[in-house]
Every structure is written in structure tokens, then in C-alpha cells.
């Protein structure tokens, strides 16, 4: 019974029935103004990116970004969708990786996080250090690449992107910290009922940590959605469909990469991607997750709660 009660760790909404005093109203008024201003500041640049993606190249050359498209044009988009299977393939790869990676990663991260915060687990400090240490020392590019390619044989394999992003010391320690807030009595009561550690975790802890799972899940999903680094290293030209953000990264950074190298002074290069093309790619690569984020979050949290009830 007690456990059930504790599971109700719903977001902290203040009951509207309680009368608001002056300080509440001050805070609330301030909040609406302050948060709105900041949110608008955050959205304007993105809006400008979308607006310029619908402008002609010549129109934004001098005036830069504008709030409304100058000389409306869908040229950049028609350029991108000239080979639609490329774009669709990129979406499919990105979405699949995000779904699989987030699910598996979330499971492992939360399991580890739970074990590491158990005060009666004698190895918790040792393992914590073992994990944390890797965030300080990374071997650097060559040894990592060498291992991935020559020992694990992951060149041109989607695993090379999926696996390294499954977890990070940061996510595990964050998770550990979140789980810590769940009263230890839940674990104790589970033990008294004779449940094993994994059962306690799966059927008692998981249901009571939906906010934490949603947050870590969000970070994992963002990590996969925004991934370009491993793709750029491991997914070479033998791979047909490269993730969305990698394509974006590639298009956007190409110019700068060339301008800073001797190659730019020596070769005759093809036309470089135009500004509007960059903007259109950015819109396409970012747009979906922004639009979907509220829905995904809603169903994700709901799904977790349902799963927990069944479990």
C-alpha cells in the first residue's frame, strides 16, 4: 500500500483550489513573462532559418536572414528531393537508430543507475569510478578508430554508430542521482516481500521513476537524432544511407572545411552548397523531432506507465 502511494510521484502541480497568495502571483506573473521572452528568443532564429530556406539565394545574399521569405522559392527543397530515396533512407536510418538505441540504452542506463545508488551494494563506488574515469580519459581518435575498424570490424556498419551512443558516464550518473530520490523503503519493502534485486528494480522502481526515464530517454533520443560524429568516421562512401544529421553536418561544414585548407587554393571545385540549401537541410533534419517531441514525450511517458502496471 505504502509502495503504491509512493509511486504517485507525479509532476508537482499545485492544486488550484489553494488560494494564491501575493508571492505566488508574483512568481507566476514573472514566470510567464520571463519564460515567454526566452522562448521567443529561442524560436526566432529557427524561424529565420525556415524563412530563408524558402528564399532565393540572391535575395538573402546581402540582406541576410529575414523573418519572412524574400522572393519565395522552393528551389532548395526541390534540389534535396530530386533524389527522394536518399532523403527517405536517411529518415528511416535515423528513426530506427533512435528508437532502438533509446530503448536499449534506457534499459541499461536505468538498471546500472539503480544498482549504483543502492547503499547496500559494496561495489558501487568502485564501479562508479570505473565508469566515471572514462569521461576524463579518452584514448583519442586513432586508438579508438583502430580498434573499431581493425579489431571489431565495424567500418561501414551501422553498429559503429548505434553502439557507442548507448550510454555515457554522464547519463548513468545522472540516472543514479535521480533514482536516489526514490525512497529506499521501496527497495526494503520489496526485499521483505522476497523479491530479487532485478524484480525490485523492474516492478517497483521503474514505475516510480517515469520523470527520470523520460528525461534520460529524451537525452538518449537527442543523442541519436543529432548524431554525426561516428557516422562521419565510420559510415564511408560504401554505405548508401547515412543518418540525417550527418548529411546536414556534411553540407554545412563542407565550405568551411575547404576554405581553410590548401585544397581550396589548388583545385577547381564544383559549386558549393548554397546558403538556402543549408537552411533547407537544417529545417528538414531538425523539423520532425521538434514537431514530434511533444507527442513522443506524451506517449512515451504513458507507455512507460502502462508497461509498469502490466509488469
Amino acid at each position: 500500500m505504502k509502495v503504491k502511494e509512493m509511486q504517485k510521484n507525479k509532476p508537482v502541480f499545485h492544486s488550484t483550489k489553494v488560494k494564491l497568495d501575493v508571492s505566488d502571483r508574483t512568481i507566476r506573473g514573472f514566470t510567464y513573462v520571463f519564460v515567454s521572452i526566452f522562448a521567443i528568443l529561442c524560436i526566432i532564429p529557427f524561424w529565420m532559418i525556415i524563412a530563408s530556406s524558402f528564399s532565393t539565394e540572391a535575395a538573402i545574399r546581402r540582406s541576410g536572414f529575414t523573418l519572412w521569405p524574400t522572393n519565395f522559392s522552393t528551389f532548395s527543397y526541390s534540389l534535396i528531393f530530386r533524389s527522394p530515396d536518399q532523403m527517405i533512407g536517411a529518415y528511416v536510418v535515423t528513426i530506427l537508430m533512435t528508437l532502438i538505441g533509446t530503448t536499449v540504452g534506457l534499459f541499461v542506463v536505468s538498471m546500472t543507475g539503480y544498482a549504483l545508488q543502492r547503499k547496500d551494494f559494496p561495489f558501487r563506488n568502485g564501479i562508479s569510478f570505473y565508469i566515471y574515469f572514462t569521461s576524463l580519459f579518452s584514448a583519442g581518435l586513432v586508438p579508438f578508430y583502430y580498434l573499431m575498424v581493425k579489431v571489431y570490424g565495424l567500418k561501414d556498419s551501422y553498429w559503429a554508430v548505434l553502439l557507442p551512443l548507448l550510454m555515457s558516464p554522464w547519463l548513468i550518473i545522472l540516472m543514479k542521482n535521480y533514482v536516489k530520490a526514490i525512497p529506499h523503503e521501496i527497495t526494503e519493502s520489496g526485499k521483505i516481500d522476497g523479491a530479487g534485486d532485478f524484480r525490485i528494480f523492474w516492478s517497483l522502481i521503474v514505475p516510480s521513476m517515469t520523470p527520470a526515464l523520460a528525461t534520460i530517454g529524451l537525452f538518449l533520443a537527442l543523442g541519436y537524432w543529432n548524431e554525426w560524429y561516428y557516422s562521419s568516421l565510420f559510415l564511408g562512401s560504401q554505405v548508401t544511407y547515412r543518418p540525417l544529421q550527418y548529411q546536414l553536418y556534411n553540407i554545412i561544414n563542407k565550405v568551411a572545411a575547404l576554405k581553410n585548407s590548401l585544397a581550396a587554393t589548388q583545385l577547381v571545385l564544383d559549386d558549393l552548397p548554397s546558403e538556402t540549401l543549408k537552411m533547407a537541410t537544417a529545417t528538414l533534419a531538425t523539423g520532425p523531432i521538434i514537431l514530434l517531441y511533444p507527442f513522443v514525450q506524451k506517449y512515451f511517458v504513458a507507455g512507460l506507465t502502462v508497461g509498469a502496471v502490466k509488469g
Partner: peptide, 10 residues
């Protein structure tokens, strides 16, 4: 078989 090194971080 061509292995292209794309210009970004080439």
C-alpha cells in the same frame, strides 16, 4: 570501387 573522402573533416 571508389572510397570517397568527403570534404568535411577530410
Amino acid at each position: 570501387k571508389i572510397e570517397w573522402i568527403e570534404w568535411t573533416d577530410w
